[in-house]
Design a protein around this nucleic acid. Structure first.
Length: 695
DNA sequence: CTTAGGG
DNA sequence: CCCTAAG
């Protein structure tokens, strides 16, 4: 009767390979190629462009194959029960379906993993020379982990098995974490997919290799985190942080220089086989095609203009569905995952201080850590950088004499998420849960960070040229990162947003939260890993700042019905998990405060207008009326905002903080407030009197 | 679930 | 924003 087992999935950020589509789109529209005229393209513009595409474009993307895909997916998972669940889920409309359509699910990823592996081995002809080796090499603990989890999920394996796997995983673990990319799928071809993932991986690996020398810690292997107990099983799935910088596409076999390598030397083939064989044999037998048919995934097979072969990078279109109905929201609200206070990993917290004349941050490692720090923190168990690291195999293609700089962002990584879901939950719910988590993050607001030559470029007004990004710059020096945007993101980054979007603000990073209360209940302990790796890393990374923990904000806002809590979780080392007791079982640990999203003027405007019309006692209606598709604004939020608005309107302008609200709006606030207060007073007067009369 | 308020 | 008491 009890949900004895729970599966916890921690995503150290799965990669969202969104780019090809966006990139193409950008290119098509000439955005990316914007001419670097006299002033050159301002980095800010670039950011805005990327962010805009990423966040907004998806909305219009129709998807007609969602259901089909979903079924296919279901097919992959053989387990009848699962299938049923899947089908059921499929029937659920709207949002759920949307989720399917987006192909954002773990299960998918997982199920595909095996396939990928196999494919790799089976597809010798893959063009990419690098693939063969790197790919195998790349099979990392992450992959293993995922598979493992997948397996469990699918088959409901016992925790014991998991343990076994985990151990295996550990042994085999290698340094690559780009597994997620592997999951990219297209109905069209296995190869492509594989190739893609491989490449992606390769690049990552390369990055790893490259950075390993510099930042060894970062690349330390992350053992899969696995905790088992009678009651629940928690798996932390994470991908290795991608290097925060982009590396040129690697065409040659890349040698992994990771430390992990040594350990995982044999990993190449090994990891795959194990998983494949043990975990999801059936899965792999299935035609890949079926698995993958998502409109949102596009392959970018074409070689670019310059003739550079684009590894078929697939893109996933990620977007936040703004049309989610209120009801849906409500339901989501039902499963509020708790947020806990996080420690600040302030990699960027010092940003302001770092503003340098040239606009480039002086801290060299800083960004690299976008990933690194994230991972490091994760490993340390401290906090995770919410920052998503991005990396891109991005490379630019230059053309002689052409002043344009072309960027190709292979993929963005989503901040790590932690999912805690009952074993008996349906796959559909798992999918939804993850989708919601991802959606919360993506929809909640992201901003793009630019890292160039290992430094974060903070000056948005600087031109690419001034920054040093010219057509002939080193291709490997540019990277982009997704960072939670503390500022309202609903609006496209525009001129007025500059200040908001700038890196000046301390980015809020998702943190991984160790042991949620559930864990406690289950008796499972999540260890906080202080593993050397993590520690050293963190030290290394955060030398300048962040000695103190800072609050992390959960990017997630909702949880699906079955899931208990979604919290950003830093990857925890398996070892740590296995033995370490929870720090403080306080629920606070499992709870994360929602990310702060200051109301924009336009939102205030909408709010004021709605309240003028509806009054101050009908927040739900106000929500419906003016913020129906702002999933992150609850009626309570609106009510609170109104409260603060009233307060703001009453204080002197000098005392006001934050984005200034037009006085006109404040006046309306006061007027409306006065009016409705009066109305309310009348109501109250009336009621009592009547009552009184009756008596 | 909504409201209303305090924290 | 969170948390809660109340309805």
């Amino acid at each position: 009767m009890v949900l004895q087992k729970r599966l916890d999935y921690g995503f150290n950020g799965y990669q969202v390979p969104p780019i090809p589509r966006a990139t193409r789109s950008l290119r098509r529209r000439g955005i990316i190629r914007r001419k670097a005229d006299g002033n050159g393209t301002c980095p800010f513009d670039l950011l805005a462009t990327v962010a805009g595409k990423l966040l907004g474009e998806g909305e219009s993307s129709p998807d007609s194959t969602g259901s089909v895909r979903g079924k296919e997916q279901g097919a992959i998972v053989k387990d009848e029960k699962v299938k049923e669940a899947e089908d059921r889920s499929l029937k659920e409309k709207s949002y759920t379906e949307g989720c399917y359509e987006r192909g954002f699910f773990i299960s998918e990823l997982v199920s595909q993993a095996p396939v990928v592996n196999r494919s790799l081995s089976e597809l010798p002809h893959v063009q990419n020379d690098t693939i063969s080796r790197p790919a195998s090499a790349s099979m990392s603990s992450d992959c293993s982990e995922k598979l493992l989890s997948a397996k469990q999920f699918v088959n409901g394996e016992s925790s014991e098995e998991h343990e076994n796997f985990s151990s295996k995983t550990e042994r085999e673990a290698s340094g690559c974490g780009v597994f997620s990319s592997c999951t990219l799928d297209t109905e069209n071809d296995k190869q492509m997919k594989i190739e893609l993932s491989n490449k992606a991986k390769v690049s990552t690996d390369k990055g790893a290799a490259i950075s390993s020398s510099k930042f060894p810690d970062v690349w330390d292997k992350k053992p899969p985190t696995l905790v088992t107990s009678d009651e629940s099983v928690k798996l932390s799935l994470s991908t290795y942080p991608a290097p925060c910088r982009s590396f040129p596409m690697i065409r040659n076999a890349v040698k992994l220089a990771n430390k992990d390598d040594d350990e995982n030397s044999g990993c190449t083939q090994p990891s795959t086989p194990n998983k494949a064989s043990g975990a999801a044999p059936r899965v792999r037998d299935r035609p890949i095609k079926k698995l993958l048919a998502s409109k949102y995934w596009e392959e970018n097979l074409k070689s670019d203009d310059e003739g550079h072969a684009n590894s078929g990078a697939k893109t996933m279109h990620v977007y936040y569905n703004r049309n989610i109905g209120y009801k849906h929201q409500r339901s989501q609200r039902d499963f509020p995952f708790k947020k806990r206070k996080l420690f600040k990993c302030g990699s960027f917290s010092n940003s302001e201080g770092e503003m340098s004349t040239d606009g480039i941050s002086s801290s060299p490692t800083n960004d690299l850590h976008g990933n690194a720090s994230g991972s490091s923190k994760a490993s340390s168990g401290g906090c995770t950088a919410a920052g998503t690291s991005v990396f891109n195999g991005g490379r630019e293609f230059l053309r002689p004499g052409d002043s344009h700089v072309k960027f190709r962002i292979k993929s963005f990584k989503v901040p790590e998420l932690f999912v805690d879901i009952p074993e008996n939950a349906t796959i559909g719910s798992l999918k939804r849960t993850v989708m919601e988590a991802v959606t919360a993050i993506l929809g909640g607001g992201l901003r793009i960070g630019v890292v160039f030559q290992g430094k974060k470029v903070r000056d948005d007004n600087k031109t690419l040229l001034q920054t040093g990004i010219s057509h002939d710059y080193k291709l490997d020096a540019l990277g982009f990162s997704l960072e939670p945007n503390p500022v309202q993101t609903s609006q496209p980054l525009g001129q007025d947003c500059r200040s908001c979007v700038l890196p000046y603000e301390t980015p809020q990073r998702l943190t991984r939260c160790p042991s949620p209360s559930t864990a406690v209940h289950s008796g499972i302990q999540q260890g906080r890993s202080d593993d050397h790796t993590g520690t050293s890393l963190s030290n290394f990374l955060e030398s300048d700042h962040e000695s103190a923990p800072s609050p992390h904000y959960a990017a997630l806002e909702k949880i699906s019905a079955n899931s208990r809590a979604l919290v950003p979780l830093t990857a925890v080392n398996a070892e740590a998990l296995s033995a370490v007791p929870l720090r403080k079982p306080k629920r606070s640990e499992a709870t994360q405060r929602r990310i702060r999203r200051p109301f924009s003027v336009s939102e205030v405007e909408a709010l004021v207008q709605a309240v003028e019309k509806l009054g101050t006692g009908r927040w739900r209606d106000v929500k419906l009326r003016a913020f129906d598709n702002a999933k992150h604004r609850t009626y309570v939020d609106l009510k609170d905002k109104w409260k603060t608005l009233v307060h703001t309107a009453r204080i002197s302008p000098q005392q006001r903080r934050g984005e200034p609200v037009p006085q006109e709006l404040l006046d309306r606030v006061l007027t409306a407030h006065a009016y409705w207060s009066q109305q309310q007073a009348k109501q109250q007067m009336k009621q009592p009197s009547e009552t009184y009369l009756l008596l």
